[in-house]
Design a binder for these strands. Structure first.
Lengths: 131, 131
DNA sequence: CAGAATCCTTTTTGATACTG
DNA sequence: CAGTATCAAAAAGGATTCTG
């Protein structure tokens, strides 16, 4: 485990502060938005670069227009993504990660990527248990 | 950004596979459990070491018994945590991270820790936008 | 095209009470 | 203590329609 040192440091800090564990800590709300069902996928989808609304919708399997719009607004409100609307007809709007959002997306990718990399291990561990 | 290289590698792989983006990919389900409202907090709460049910309940502000039990079962089903029940009265049950769960929790801590570390930046960015 | 608005269905969640 | 059962409330999600 290469990130053991970093984890320990963070862990130590959390042991003393433990903000997220408090029900009304603002960090929990941010975490919540970022880890929401579609929030995670939106962040990942934007990592390669800015995308248009419809491109995001195609890329993220299963999102409805409603949920995508809602999620984008929420993340924009948190300062994780920006939105740029071109005043043309038909409308053209694209979204991208802010510097802050890029950092967050990196961490999300850290988790999502790990899952994908270890999917077979995870699934077999889960299956063993089911037996 | 120190993890730029790792992120690029993962990103590249995702660009070609992009499993999570597919609505029926099993990795999305795992991700979903891990990033669920209480799942994240349970994983973080177990990172320092095994804990009893009631200890977890106290530590995680706002969970109901029901949600905690449900979340624990789900994560246990995914092979992320183990459960050990001592046959005594009154009952004594504790939970801990499996090796797999420990790795996952590390990634989650990566995100949660980043949020806590940058909370003031995040909140001010969000506020600016609201103005 | 990018959404806002509306309506309706499905999940999730929280209290509360009950049990081994 | 560590849950399960039940019920009611709330939130999330989906489908459809409409507009600049």
């Amino acid at each position: 485990m290469t990130e053991a040192i970093a984890a320990d440091a963070l862990l130590d800090r959390m042991r003393h502060k433990g903000d997220v564990m408090q029900r009304d800590c603002p960090s929990r709300a941010i975490l919540q938005h970022l880890t929401s069902r579609w929030g995670v996928l939106v962040m990942l989808a934007l990592l390669p670069g800015p995308r248009r609304f419809s491109a995001l919708r195609r890329r993220i399997g299963g999102v409805s227009e409603r949920m995508l719009a809602q999620t984008l607004q929420q993340l924009e409100g948190d300062g994780m993504i920006w939105r740029r609307a071109h005043a043309v007809v038909p409308p053209h709007v694209d979204y991208g990660l802010t510097p802050l959002g890029t950092e967050a997306a990196g961490r999300i990718l850290g988790l999502a990527g790990w899952i994908e990399d270890n999917l077979s291990d995870i699934l077999s561990a889960a299956q063993q248990r089911a037996a």
